[in-house]
Amino acid sequence: MLHKLMITLLASLLAMPAWAACREAQVPYLPNPDMADMGEMLEAQAAVKNYIQRQQLFLDCRRDSLRHNRAVDRMHEIAKEFNKITRRFKAKQQSEDMFTELALISY
């Protein structure tokens, strides 16, 4: 699934018109880690990577330092938020795994 998603992502980047590179990328959707499954987290990961790549293209087109700095700050915020929800998701998964192990031991 991840391989197919990455191929689709790469194809969409290659098909992107030149003018689109000079526009800021849309901020990706980040799922609620308490409700998300692994598939949603992998989709979010791909979306964040795509966002960062598209923003890099946008930054290459910009010479306005204020707009450039805001775009870089936004990229850092998105990456930081994704890392935060990933840690929370992994902690939830680990907690569920421990609960399952305890239930099996008690059984």
Rank of each mutant, 00 (worst) to 15 (best):
Q56K: 09
V72W: 07
F89H: 04
R70S: 08
A71T: 07
R23F: 03
E40C: 05
S106W: 05
A46C: 08
I105P: 00
D73Y: 03
H3V: 12
K49C: 08
A11D: 14
N83E: 15
W19V: 11
S12M: 06
R74M: 11
C22Q: 13
P28G: 02
D37H: 10
R88N: 08
K4A: 15
E96W: 00
I52E: 02
P31C: 11
A36C: 11
I78W: 08
S12P: 00
A91H: 01
R62A: 14
I85Y: 01
E40K: 09
I7D: 10
N69E: 15
L14A: 07
A46V: 06
M38I: 08
L59N: 03
D37V: 13
L66Q: 14
Q55P: 07
M75T: 07
K49P: 00
F89A: 05
L10E: 13
L104M: 09
A11R: 14
D97P: 00
Q53T: 13
A21L: 13
R23N: 03
T100I: 10
I7H: 07
G39P: 01
K90C: 09
K84V: 14
D97L: 06
E40S: 12
K90E: 11
N83W: 04
V27S: 00
H3M: 12
N83P: 02
P31L: 10
M75R: 04
I7V: 15
P17Y: 08
I52R: 06
Y51Q: 02
N83Q: 14
L13D: 02
K92G: 03
A91D: 04
T100G: 05
A79S: 15
D37N: 15
L30C: 02
P28D: 03
A71L: 04
M41N: 10
L10W: 09
S106D: 06
R88T: 14
M35A: 13
K90L: 15
F89M: 11
T86D: 00
Y51W: 05
R88I: 10
G39F: 07
C61D: 04
M38E: 09
E24N: 08
R67P: 00
H68V: 01
V72S: 07
L66Y: 12
A91V: 00
S12F: 01
L2H: 07
P28W: 01
A21Q: 05
G39W: 11
L10K: 14
C22R: 12
F82D: 01
D60L: 09
D34C: 04
Y29L: 05
R70Q: 15
T8R: 13
Y107S: 06
P28C: 05
Y51C: 04
P28I: 04
R70D: 15
L13E: 04
A79V: 12
I78N: 07
M35W: 03
D73Q: 10
E77H: 10
L2A: 06
K49G: 05
M1A: 12
Q56H: 12
M75A: 05
N69H: 14
L57Y: 06
L14D: 06
K4C: 12
N83Y: 11
R70W: 13
A79P: 04
Y29D: 04
